[in-house]
Computed example of a mutant assay.
Amino acid sequence: MKYRQREGWTHRDLLRLAHPVTGEPARRALFDLVCGRDAELAELPLYRAFLAANATSDVASWVRLIGTAGLSWEMLPDAALTEPDVWAALLDRGLPQTALLRQLPRLTRLGLLAPMSSRAAAVAAQLTDPQRLAAARVHPVNVLVAARTYAAGASGRSDRTWVPSAPIVDALDAAFYAAYGAVRPAGKRTLLALDVSGSMMSPAGGLPVSCREASAALALVTAATEPAHAIVGFTSAGSYRDAGLTPLAISPRQRLDDAVDAVSNLPFGGTDCALPMVWAREQGVEVDTFVVLTDNETWAGRVHPHQALAEYRAATGIPARLVVAALTPTKFTIADPADAGMLDVSGFDAAVPGLIADFSRGEV
């Protein structure tokens, strides 16, 4: 009822592969229903409510079924999702945090988030609730993407527009920082190396944020959640190809726009992906995970990154790992396919920060 298929796979496909057996009447009725057999609907009150909702066009009936049966928005017919009263009922019952983030434009178009309204105040309070953000595992990057999309007043995927509500814009700004508590730290000594070139103003993976803003956001999150970290930028040590690394003053107490300023207007150099390991070895810095964030520039200078990583491991005895993330989708290869401690990431979405952290912990 809520998720009827994903990528062409249905619940029926899953049951046919798994062949589950149960003696519970309600579960047996559910399996029968999914597989197209006669089912005892008396055992499935939620499904009966779903059928009732999809058999009517009466707004009052939809509102009643939301309240009495607990139907979620995914279970309702498309016509119901154009009705302000339906969404008011869904809000009253409680929208999950991630669903609320995605539905802000629709709620605004329907007039439910007008400035100074009690509804807008309630939604703003939910958006900034650290406990709700943590329980839903909403990463700050998720909030950032939602904030930029909402503030734009238009969707890049359709011609729909809305006038952003100021209390919601402010709430999304605050929610970015409140979501730090939702991040599961890798717990590793992390060196984050940022491309600071002008091309970082290009969009990150087709999202409404630039590569520069995405990298600055990840730097802030790293500073706020990883006890042992260092953040450096690829800057010029003379010519573009004669690149070096410069420590960046990024603090977890900074705002995102301040962090963006910290990585802007620097004398940028080439993104030599071997430099972080060379620099750490020369400076005697102990690092468990090296992370390089760039737009799509990934090249090697005097030494290849996998060789620099091997030399760092040999010199320090640390089984260090390396992640190179090109935030705009591009074809590149830095990682040695035979080295499980190296990872290439091409493109960017809200799942990338978690992937990097999981890899750093050795869980990927």
Rank of each mutant, 00 (worst) to 15 (best):
F234W: 09
G238D: 08
D257E: 12
T328P: 03
D339G: 01
A308F: 11
G238E: 12
R212H: 04
L293I: 13
A315Q: 14
G206P: 05
R281W: 02
H304A: 14
G317I: 15
G341N: 13
D257T: 01
S210Y: 11
I231S: 14
M342S: 01
V303M: 15
A237C: 04
E213M: 07
S239M: 07
A237P: 06
P337A: 05
P252N: 03
G205I: 12
A214D: 02
A340H: 11
L275V: 03
A216C: 03
D258Q: 15
A228D: 13
P227I: 01
N265K: 11
I318E: 05
Y240L: 09
D257Q: 06
G317A: 14
A338P: 01
P203R: 13
G270W: 12
S215R: 03
L256M: 08
Y312K: 15
F290Y: 14
E282R: 15
T316L: 07
R302I: 05
A314Y: 04
S236N: 14
G284K: 12
T235R: 05
R241C: 02
S215T: 10
V263T: 06
M277R: 04
I334R: 05
A204E: 10
T328S: 09
D288Y: 15
L220Q: 04
C211P: 07
A249L: 06
T246D: 00
Y240R: 15
V263P: 00
A224G: 09
E282V: 12
V303A: 13
E213F: 03
W279Y: 15
M277T: 11
G244T: 01
A338D: 14
F332N: 08
P247A: 06
P252C: 06
V278I: 15
S239N: 13
V221S: 02
P276Q: 09
A326K: 01
